[in-house]
Design a protein around this nucleic acid. Structure first.
Lengths: 294, 294
DNA sequence: GTTCCGCATGAATCGATAG
DNA sequence: ACTATCGATTCATGCGGAA
């Protein structure tokens, strides 16, 4: 089985035209947020955001299979002391295009941006909006089940000392009781809250998207040899993960620097994948290192 | 200082008329969620929800002080496989009434119980929408500070060293200051994600939020002798907590059973508060027990 | 090879200052 | 008055160098 990766350089609204109707199983993307990342991308004003995005979501609707899923990572910024409403307006408009707004997952970012303000706390969550074309879509829930023991362990680890202390100081009994409840079972389904840290400290590019995020959705909504699309590829996290997980992938990127960078990454990952002796876990480690050290 | 608790029995849209303009410091409430089924208590059909709520939010706007805050606990239901949009529509309409949508907190319900659906996971979060009348509002951030992360250890060590040096080089007498530095550095400001356990009460009512939730917002947005309002009192969690925390409170409830129940709870709490010998912590425990065992 | 410590670095936001 | 730019604030994380 051969896994293909296609990369397009250019504006995604136009480049999407090269993608066939009903050909994509999963779209996972994180478009530039309004007026953020002005340095790298143009920066779209909050008031123009919906207008800017709608032609793109229309194309995404066209290329997605009826059984496919679109996962959109986004968060509204604060403007003039208030949360902007463009994300809500976007959802309402996308529904008019025919999208079903199936679910909203929460990405709880452990390491949110620091800062102190008189009227608000640090923003430590983002939206992961799930859209579908049809009510029946492919979902492989068992793939993201977590063994109970591990779950408890990883959860404990993830939560870190801080959270444990917080929990204890606040609720007293809740946490320990919880764990003992879970321990008797084998596996559990996750919920719609994802608890991951952002990847910071990568030198060249700002990959705010931890690999676990696309990995989780790829596991959940696709099987091997399916096709994953990221129209705002950026540093290529989604593509690399898809490649590693034996999914075909298509990526579109506006900036030549990123485009080239991803092209190289993919190549090096493919080399690892071709080594016959190396086991999956091993490969994964290799691949990770190969671009984490970039 | 005497703390007052006023309870009104009746439809909150009407009963709110008895509350004076600009008299409330904090509104915390969890209105009945939309429900497709007819005949359930408080079940308002999703399509009618915004229309039903707007006259109430208008009254709430009138009674809230300009420096006050309105915290609305709500989550959209799934209707026909899709998330409903009435919460988003409500936010947009409330903005037209003059409300500022300052922030959206996430309440991550840690121990919501497993369930299985073919196309979605457990819903383990709810929205806590913060609305204000003015950009400047009262917020007492220090009251909700929380123990810091692991690195605090090393940082604390450093700090204590520098503090020691500072104290030595200056005039003595630095001990108290030293300690206070220590303590203040040991804590961090929280973020906009709250994780609290849900109260798995086998009580006779449905809408149970844990005491920690109103407690947190009461600490954050009010000081002693301020006034807290809950127009959908239900089992009275907000009122009881407010009472315990020495805030005046006003509660409105449609159902006589709940109304009576809360009235009794409040009375018993007040008895504890009046005992002169009992210390705050002790009182708190008593009060908790008095209605937890109900 | 461990473990420990120091350091840079974020999808941030506010308020003041400048044009 | 209204918009653009800049400094200050703050905390979890992973890296690199050191013991």
């Amino acid at each position: 089985m051969e896994i293909k990766t296609e990369l397009f350089l250019g504006d995604c609204k136009k480049e999407l035209g090269k993608v066939a109707d009903n050909s994509i199983d999963l779209i996972v993307t994180s478009p530039p947020y309004a007026d953020q990342r002005n340095g790298t991308y143009g920066g779209i004003h909050p008031s123009k955001y919906v207008e800017w995005f709608l032609p793109i979501s229309k194309e995404l609707f066209r290329v997605l299979k009826p059984t496919g899923t679109f996962v959109l990572n986004i968060k509204e910024k604060v403007v003039d002391g208030e949360r902007s409403t463009y994300v809500m307006e976007l959802i309402l408009e996308m529904k008019k295009q025919g999208w079903l707004w199936t679910e909203e997952f929460i990405w709880h970012k452990k390491n949110s941006y620091p800062g102190k303000w008189p009227n608000r706390f640090r923003d430590s969550w983002e939206r992961l909006l799930q859209f579908n074309k049809e009510k029946k879509f492919n979902m492989y829930q068992d793939e993201v089940m977590v063994p109970m023991g591990d779950w408890a362990k990883s959860r404990l680890k993830n939560l870190s000392e801080t959270d444990k202390r917080r929990d204890n100081s606040k609720v007293g009994s809740g946490f320990g009781k919880n764990i003992s409840n879970w321990i008797s079972r084998d596996k559990a389904y996750p919920s719609n809250v994802l608890h991951l840290a952002t990847e910071c400290g990568n030198k060249n590019h700002s990959a705010a998207f931890p690999e676990e995020l696309p990995e989780w959705f790829i596991k959940l909504f696709t099987k091997e040899a399916d096709t994953v699309l990221d129209p705002f590829m950026g540093s290529g996290t989604t593509l690399v993960v898809a490649n590693r997980m034996k999914r075909n992938s298509i990526g579109i990127e506006l900036k030549p620097e990123y485009f080239k960078m991803v092209k190289n990454q993919i190549k090096s990952v493919e080399l690892y994948l071709l080594e016959p002796k190396v086991k999956y876990e091993k490969r994964k480690t290799h691949a990770k290192r190969s671009y984490a050290s970039r």
